[in-house]
Every structure is written in C-alpha cells, then in structure tokens.
C-alpha cells in the first residue's frame, strides 16, 4: 500500500508550471532519492507535496486521502514533514524553543523532545543556543529534529547535506535514512547523487520538471550514461 502517491502532477509558482506531469509513489519504510540538475524542479516538487507551491493539476494523495485541499499546516498534522532546503530553522529562537514550537498543539511535547534527543544526542549540548548561530551541520540536525517532533509518517528532505564536509555527508545520510527502519517513508533530494544512490532503495531523476528515469537505486547507479542523465543532457 503506498503511503504517498502522485499522479500526473503539474505544479509551480504564479501561472507558470515548473513540474510537468510527475508520477511518484513512496511506501512505508521506503527511501526514495529525487535527483536532477539545478533548476530541475526538485525543490518545487517537494514544496508541492508540502503545500507550499501550487499544484495546478493531478492528484497528491497521502494514505489514500487527497492532500490538495489542505494547507501546509494541515498536511503537517496529517503526517507529512517537509524539511526545506534553506531557512529551515527559526534563527532567533533557541534550539530548545525551535523544538518546542514544532510540537505546537501536542500535549506531550516534553516526551517528544526527549524522544528526538535520543535519536540526535548531539543536540542536547546545543539546546540553549540561538539557532541562527549554529554551524551548517548542526542546523541541519536541528531542522531534522524539528520535523520529527510531529511524529511524521513521511519525510520530505531537501538537500540536507548541502555545504557539509564529505565525511559529514555520509554520516548525515546514514542517520536520516536509518529513520526509515521505524516505518517512515523518506523522499530525499540530494546533490551528492552517488552517496545517495548507495543508501536509498529507489531513485527518480527529474529534468526540466519531468521524470526522465526511475528505478532501483542500484540499477540507476550502474547505468553507463548515469552522469549524462544526471546532468540533464538527455532531456
């Protein structure tokens, strides 16, 4: 049974459609990478699922229920957690406040914070720091922790490793994708295509708003013209 399902989705900003007919499925505990050149529309697709970008046609269903009429906050409540590419923490709030505010409306906020800190123990030392003063890696961890506060069922992550050192890229991806073992579906946009493909189950390659190739990660990684596809020359 698919957790998230997109059918012929067109989406964009204003009157222009950036995403031009995308089909996509994620099942529980599945990890899917969304790859493609800069400007392909990867972020736009995640935003469309999260409700931040406009969907002009097609269907987006989550757990059998249509999302298209729901606001971003309602989608979050339904179990969709979106981690934006940038500006993904409240810079003027402390880390503790960032976590607390992300559990808005949850009676058991304290328990959730403990739960998240068990997953990301490094955050405990940073709780009082303003989020605007964290390093890039720390900030990504806080953003992830915030997304997890809502106990989501699917995670939409946009370039969590941007700007991280090569060693941290691997660690971050391992940590993130490890979350799927608990049943979480994960759709991740990643520029480090090779690093992603060795860790996810499936991948889609998006070029100019269309899926040009999809399949098992290992198959895609083995494709001889993978680089060409990835850089968008095959559109």
């Amino acid at each position: 049974m698919s957790l998230l399902s997109l059918k012929s989705v067109r989406a964009g900003y204003g009157s222009a459609d950036i995403i031009q007919g995308v089909d996509l499925n994620v099942v529980p505990a599945e990890t899917v990478a969304l790859l493609g050149p800069n400007g392909a529309g990867k972020s736009t697709l995640l935003k469309a699922i999260a409700g931040v970008a406009r969907v002009s046609s097609g269907s987006v269903t989550f757990d059998g229920q249509s999302l298209t009429a729901l606001s971003p906050a309602e989608r979050a409540a339904a179990g969709v957690a979106f981690l934006p590419q940038d500006r993904n923490v409240f810079r003027t709030l402390s880390v503790a406040e960032n976590l607390a505010v992300s559990a808005w409306g949850c009676a058991d906020a304290a328990a959730r914070i403990e739960e998240v800190l068990r997953l990301l123990p490094n955050l405990s030392a940073l709780m009082r720091k303003p989020a605007g003063r964290l390093s890039g890696g720390q900030r990504q961890m806080v953003a992830l922790a915030m997304a997890l506060m809502a106990r989501p069922r699917i995670l939409l992550v946009d370039e969590p490793t941007a700007g991280l050192s090569p060693r941290l890229v691997g660690e971050t991806l391992d940590l993130l994708l490890g979350l799927a073992q608990a049943g979480l579906g994960i759709l991740i946009v990643e520029q480090n295509a090779r690093a992603a493909l060795t860790r996810v189950q499936r991948a889609l390659i998006l070029v100019d708003g269309k899926v040009v190739r999809s399949g098992a990660a290992s198959d895609l990684a083995a494709e001889p013209d993978f680089g060409r596809l990835f850089f968008g020359e095959a559109a």
């Binding site: 931040v52 606001s71 971003p72 915030m146």
Partner: peptide, 11 residues
C-alpha cells in the same frame, strides 16, 4: 521569524 516555516511546521 519565518512565516512559511511556521506554516510547514504545523503552526
């Protein structure tokens, strides 16, 4: 601080 993030985080 960030209205659109607040929206996405379910506020």
């Amino acid at each position: 601080d960030n209205t659109s993030l607040a929206d996405v985080r379910g506020l």
